[in-house]
């Protein structure tokens, strides 16, 4: 059984026999399938902003599952530092699920906001935005994935695109803002 999402990277640690096999998906098939989903959303919702929202929500639902897949394959055992976590997403996470790596840059002074810069983005091969869709964040699903995955490791975040090649920028830049790290609390009330 497969989630069918982006498992096309080569094995991260091919030498490690205990690592479960990472299924690979043909890159073109993946790109075209994603394109078909976005196209269908545009047809269904007829509103670019609504499609952006839908993509983000879809990504979120992928993210809250993907995190366990990621943790089990990467052997990452703790995610407490936001800085470290951002690096892991850029170097290990993107590599594992999209087959590319991102660069972490532009930290703010408090260390709660940074950018992930993607020079190579396999989602947008063959894509051009028509005049009517200039407000579309075509890759918004990725923002949702990261937001969902981080929420599962107790980091509430806000993730959005600030530069997008499809909008004429020179690269893809995603802004990651840490809102709150949620502590572990005893989940039951005393009178339950």
């Amino acid at each position: 059984m497969s989630t069918g999402f982006g498992l096309m990277a080569p094995l991260l640690r091919p030498s490690d026999a205990s690592a479960p096999n990472v299924e690979k998906v043909n890159a073109e098939l993946f790109t075209l399938t994603y394109g078909a989903i976005v196209r269908q959303l545009l047809t269904d919702f007829e509103d670019v902003d609504e499609v952006n929202k839908q993509l983000d929500t879809m990504g979120y639902h992928i993210g809250i599952r993907l995190i366990d897949d990621f943790l089990s394959k990467s052997n990452v055992t703790r995610c407490t530092e936001f800085k470290e976590t951002a690096e892991v997403i850029a170097k290990v996470g993107f590599k594992m699920f999209l087959g590319v790596t991102a660069t972490v840059a532009n930290w703010d002074a408090d260390g709660t906001e940074c950018s992930l810069i993607l020079d190579d983005n396999p989602l947008v091969d063959y894509v051009e935005l028509p005049e009517t869709c200039q407000g579309l964040y075509y890759c918004n699903v990725l923002c949702g994935v990261i937001r969902g995955a981080l929420e599962m490791v107790s980091m509430r975040t806000e993730v959005k695109w600030v530069r997008d090649v499809l909008h004429g920028d020179d690269t893809f830049e995603m802004r990651l803002k840490l809102l709150k790290q949620v502590p572990e609390e005893y989940p039951y009330k005393d009178d339950e």
């Binding site: 059984m1 205990s18 479960p20 366990d68 897949d69 089990s72």
Partner: peptide
């Protein structure tokens, strides 16, 4: 670790 990676993730998390 094995139960988490190879059984829980494979059969539960990846179950649509």
């Amino acid at each position: 670790r094995y139960i988490y990676s190879n059984i829980y993730v494979e059969y539960v998390i990846k179950n649509p």
